[in-house]
């Protein structure tokens, strides 16, 4: 019994790592640029397709394709921010949200048009491999995703703490107006934050490819949970997103085991709802709450 419980916890934490991986980029975008980017899931979908095609056409392993996709998505994110969200920076909330929803429709259906609705999966060298002690083996791709989440979290944390650009990002996230007065080019900071956020989700897409299949609506499976995690961890907080991811992963695993898998989502949404209402700054106090 307890052995199974340990397995449940291990798998919950691994899943939490995947959630964290996806949420790290979102917490930057939502926390700093203040865009409720529902298209985050579609960014993930696109990067999964990119990684899929690199593997199918040229045999590039998803872990190698990170090197191509991360910079590509940095640019892609900046283009999206420049072309769609920057013009409506000062527009009411509703415009921003519906611009993002429009983007969801366009990207999802572009994928459908180009690649059809098929579920596409690949079997790479790593995708079937197991590591760990006998009885508690875990899938190598999940472990790699977890490690990647940790390192991206640490990398972003130190970037934001210690570099000039990072500090500017943090300042902009805390108070846009004040940052502007301090001579920070907030528009440029938004571009960079959006770019980094997209780049993170690009990396996430590559690392997910050995684990999941990709299809045009795959993003919808991840995007809401990512928002839950970002709010749970506090906007713009890297550590918060990471720990928030782990918490949600654990909650899911435990409720899946003790209650039922079909209620998992409902349970974390209810937790999310109560948290929003009774502690809207997130569990770890956010760096940039209004």
């Amino acid at each position: 019994m307890s052995e199974i419980l340990i397995k449940v916890v291990i798998n919950g934490l691994l899943m939490g790592g995947i959630y964290a991986l996806i949420s790290l980029g979102l917490t930057l975008i939502f926390g700093v640029v203040r865009i409720v980017n529902f298209a985050h899931g579609e960014f993930l979908m696109l990067s999964m397709y990119a990684s899929y095609w690199l593997f199918q056409l040229w045999g590039i392993d998803p872990y190698v394709s990170v090197l191509i996709i991360a910079p590509l998505f940095f640019v892609f994110g900046m283009i999206v921010q420049r072309g769609i969200f920057q013009p409506i920076l000062n527009a009411p909330e509703v415009s921003k949200i519906f611009a993002a929803i429009g983007l969801v429709m366009v990207l999802q259906n572009l994928a459908l048009l180009f690649w059809k609705g098929d579920y596409r999966a690949i079997k790479t060298i790593s995708s079937g491999l197991l590591i760990g002690p006998e009885g508690f083996m875990i899938g190598l791709p999940r472990f790699i995703a977890f490690l990647a989440a940790v390192s991206i979290m640490l990398g972003l944390y130190f970037f934001i703490k210690n570099t000039y650009t990072g500090k500017a990002i943090r300042a902009t996230g805390q108070d846009q107006g004040a940052a502007l007065l301090m001579g920070i080019n907030t528009k440029r900071i938004f571009l960079i934050a959006f770019g980094i956020g997209s780049s993170c989700v690009g990396i996430a897409g590559c690392l997910l490819m050995p684990i999941y299949s990709v299809f045009p609506t795959v993003g919808a499976y991840f995007v809401l949970v990512a928002f839950v995690i970002v709010v749970l961890g506090g906007l713009g907080s890297m550590l918060g997103a990471f720990i928030g991811g782990l918490i949600i992963g654990l909650v899911e695993a435990l409720s899946g085991y003790f209650i039922s898998s079909t209620y998992k989502e409902a349970i974390y949404f209810i937790i999310f709802w109560f948290l929003l209402i009774y502690k809207p700054t997130g569990l770890f106090g956010s760096v940039s709450q209004e």
Partner: peptide
């Protein structure tokens, strides 16, 4: 056991 086909982790089940 029922589960949602949109779920992304079925290990606990």
């Amino acid at each position: 056991e029922a589960y949602s086909a949109k779920g992304v982790d079925l290990s606990s089940m």
